[in-house]
Amino acid sequence: MLDPKVLMTIKNLPLLAKTVIDGFMNGFNKSTVKGPGLEFSQYRSYQPGDDLRWLDWRMYARSDRYYIRESEIETSISVRFVIDASNSMNHHDGTLSKIDYARFLAASLGYLANLQGDAVGLYVLKDSGLFSLASRPDPQHLQRFYHQLANIDPAGRFTQPTHYKELFSGSGRKELLVFITDMYQPNGEIMQLLDQLAALRHEIIVFQLMAQNELDLDFKGYSALEDLETGEVIQLGAQTKQRYKEVLHAHQENIRMQLLGKHIVHRMISTAQPLDEALRAFLVQRSK
Rank of each mutant, 00 (worst) to 15 (best):
P4R: 07
L149A: 06
N26G: 12
R58K: 13
A102H: 01
T19P: 02
L209F: 03
D276K: 12
Q42P: 00
E39N: 13
D84P: 09
E232Y: 07
Q235C: 01
N187F: 07
K34L: 11
H147W: 08
K220G: 07
H163K: 12
P161N: 06
V206D: 03
L260Q: 14
D138G: 08
F207H: 06
N87R: 12
R62I: 01
G117P: 04
M59F: 09
A199M: 10
S86A: 08
N213W: 09
G188R: 08
S45H: 10
A102F: 03
N12M: 00
G117C: 01
P139Y: 04
P14W: 03
E253P: 01
L2D: 03
T159F: 06
V284K: 14
L215E: 14
L13C: 07
D182I: 10
E175N: 06
Y123F: 13
A272I: 00
A238W: 06
R267C: 11
Q116K: 15
R103W: 01
G237C: 02
E214T: 07
F179W: 13
T95G: 06
Q192F: 01
D218K: 10
A281E: 15
W54P: 00
K241E: 12
W54G: 00
E39I: 13
G172L: 12
L115C: 04
S135F: 00
G94T: 11
N254C: 00
L38K: 15
S128Y: 11
D227P: 05
S31A: 06
Q239H: 12
D100C: 05
G156I: 05
L193G: 03
K288M: 14
E214P: 03
P139W: 03
L225W: 11
E70K: 15
K18E: 13
H141Y: 05
L125A: 02
P14H: 05
S97W: 07
K34T: 13
R53K: 11
H202L: 10
E70R: 15
L236W: 04
S270Q: 12
P161E: 07
F145W: 05
P139L: 04
S31T: 04
S71K: 12
I83L: 14
Y244H: 05
S169D: 04
L194A: 08
L125W: 01
M210F: 05
M210A: 12
R136H: 12
R103G: 02
T240F: 06
Y123V: 00
A198D: 06
F168Q: 11
R136E: 13
E39K: 13
V247H: 04
N29P: 00
V265D: 15
T181H: 09
I255S: 01
D100F: 01
L283K: 07
E189N: 02
L38P: 00
S128E: 14
I68D: 04
K5H: 05
A85H: 01
E70C: 10
H163W: 05
F219A: 06
F104T: 03
M268A: 14
H266K: 05
Y101Q: 11
A17Q: 03
L2G: 07
